[in-house]
Write a protein that binds this DNA or RNA. Sequence first.
DNA 1: TAGTTGACCGGAA
DNA 2: ATTCCGGCCAACT
Length: 85
Amino acid sequence: MTRKTFTEKVLHVVKNIPRGKTLTYKEVANRAGSPNASRAVGSILKQNYNPAIPCHRVIRSDGETGEYNRGRIEKIRKLKAEGAI
DNA sequence: TAGTTGACCGGAA
DNA sequence: ATTCCGGCCAACT
């Protein structure tokens, strides 16, 4: 069984996030199989530069947008453009 | 191989 | 309400 690594699972989950919807790092980690790996999710998305992965739809549990490769402002702007805010 | 870092979370002061 | 602390996991050096 070639199980997918945590990283692959996270990328898959984020890739499946529909437009106008936002998931928290904790939710993504939970779907990836590790509910406590919320921090690892951020580290992974940070390294993953893939336009097919809408990492800007992943926000913090506090309701804040969190950070983004291209800037937090761009992240917020994209979320607003999608109606997530 | 081991140690440090960080796009986090939750609880305590 | 805001600020501080420890814990958790993967990637980096």
